[in-house]
């Protein structure tokens, strides 16, 4: 599993980057990007807090690269 910030929803409120600074950062235009692929057990709480605290509910878990996304193949590395 990895984290995904929905770019349509994210308004750059930067709450996620404060609550889970090692997992999110703001890009040069002030919008959030998810940083880490594997979330360690110890960080799950902080990440979950970021997910619930985001005022626009922009953050969610999605299958990681290489994990089966239903197509029976992994996503091409863009």
């Amino acid at each position: 599993m990895r984290l995904r910030v929905d770019p349509v929803k994210c308004q750059g409120y930067a709450i996620c980057t404060e609550v889970a600074a090692r997992h999110f950062s703001l890009d040069d235009w002030g919008f959030a990007q998810a940083l880490v692929v594997d979330v360690a057990e110890a960080d799950v709480e902080a990440v979950t807090e970021a997910i619930t605290d985001c005022p626009v509910r922009a953050i969610r878990w999605i299958p990681g690269p290489g994990e089966d996304d239903g197509r029976g193949t992994q996503e091409p590395a863009g």
Partner: peptide, 12 residues
């Protein structure tokens, strides 16, 4: 015109 990061980055 819907993703903040796309609108801001493409313009910049």
């Amino acid at each position: 015109g819907q993703c903040g990061m796309c609108m801001a980055s493409s313009t910049a």
